[in-house]
Structures are given as C-alpha cells and as structure tokens.
Simulated scan of single mutants.
Amino acid sequence: MVTSRDNGEGRAWAYLESRKNLTGSACGLAGVVLTFTGAAGPYWPVVVAGLYGAGALLAPPERPAPPDFPDPAAQLSAQLEEVRGDFGRLRSYLADVELPSAAGGRLTELTGLLAALLEPGWVAEVLAADPEAVHAVSRAVRQDVPEAVDAYVRTRWWTRMTPGQEPPERHLERQLALLHEEAERLTAELRETEARRQESHTRYLEDRSG
C-alpha cells in the first residue's frame, strides 16, 4: 500500500533530480563563489537564495515523455503478414473444394493475382504503404473468396436435392469475376502510385538540372 509519506518522499526525490533544482543549485553555487571572493558582502545568504531562485525559474519545465505509439507503417506491415498467413490457409481450404472448370479457372486467376500482391518483397512494400489497399486484400482473402466458395458448396447440395433450379456455378463464376476485376483495379492503382513516383523523380532531376 502506498502511503502519503511515500508519495511525499517520491516527490521530494523527483524535485531533487529536476532541472529546476539542478539549475538553481548551479546558480546558488555561483553565489557561494561570490561569497568567498567577498563580492556578495554581508548579504550573501540573500544573494545565494536569489541566484538559486532565479536559476530555478529560468530552468525549462519538466516535460513528460509522449506515449510511444507503434509506427503506422510497421502496423500495416504486421497486418499484411497476418493476411499472408491467412491466405495460405485459404489456399489449403480451396485445394479441398471441388469446383467446375470455368469457376476453377477464374479462381486460379484471382488467387494468382492475390499471391503476387502478397509475395514478400518490394511489391508487398508498396501494398503495405496503402491502408485502403491492405484492407481490400484482407477483405478478399478473409471474407469475399471463402464466402463465395462456401455459398456455392452449400447451394450446390440444395440444387441436387431440388433439380431444375438455376445452377449455382453461374453465381460463383460471376462473383469470382467481380473479385478479379477488383483485384485488377487495385493492382492498376498501385502501379499508378509507382508511375507517379517515377515521374516525380524525373521532375526533380529536371528542376535540379535547371
């Protein structure tokens, strides 16, 4: 249990180590030196106390250290690493699902594009610099693709029980096509980011060359 005495001792030690006390003590020491040289005269206690007080007032105030929050870029990189792990689990799941050839082809194109974006290296670094892009890839891996495939598997069973309904693979093919279009748009946006970076460097070199 922390008592008021402990708090008082803690505050006392904190003040002794503070900038105000250290600066005031240095100025007070200068007053002691003046006393020994005779410059302070009979009023040396007032001089020493005054110099100490002046030093304490002039010392910069104590500033608490700001919170050490994680770097946003590091957070995005860590998030992307988690998505990469989830993508590996998604591919293992998809390997066990039987799909019609057309839907399987579209799924292969989509997962190939996602794999290229998530591959460790400079492409993933470009992706990690865009929070919205990271969110889009995460949503595709963790929600959109597994939901589309699972919905197909469930609906296919009901269709077999009640033939004559609309084939569920049509919806799956359309969903995968839409997801592939989204992934292509995302890839194009990241490419534009790199193109603008290249153009900016060209303008910089042109301006530097006069």
Rank of each mutant, 00 (worst) to 15 (best):
T3L: 09
N7W: 09
W13T: 09
A14Y: 08
N21W: 11
N21V: 14
G24A: 15
C27S: 04
C27R: 01
C27M: 11
L29N: 04
A30H: 06
G31P: 07
V33I: 13
T35E: 02
T35K: 11
T37G: 07
W44N: 04
V46P: 03
V47C: 07
V48R: 05
L51T: 10
Y52N: 07
A54Y: 07
G55T: 09
P67C: 06
D68Q: 15
D71E: 14
E81Y: 09
D86Q: 14
G88M: 09
R89P: 02
R89T: 04
L90G: 04
L90Y: 05
A95Y: 06
A102Y: 09
G104I: 02
R106G: 02
T108V: 05
T111S: 09
G112V: 08
A116L: 14
L117A: 13
E119N: 10
G121T: 02
D130W: 12
S138R: 15
V141T: 09
Q143Y: 13
V145N: 07
E147W: 08
D150W: 04
D150C: 01
V153P: 00
V153K: 07
W157C: 00
T162E: 05
T162V: 13
P163F: 00
Q165T: 00
E166V: 01
P168L: 00
E169V: 00
E169T: 00
L172G: 01
H180S: 08
T187F: 02
A188E: 15
E189Q: 13
E194W: 12
A195E: 14
R196N: 09
H201R: 14
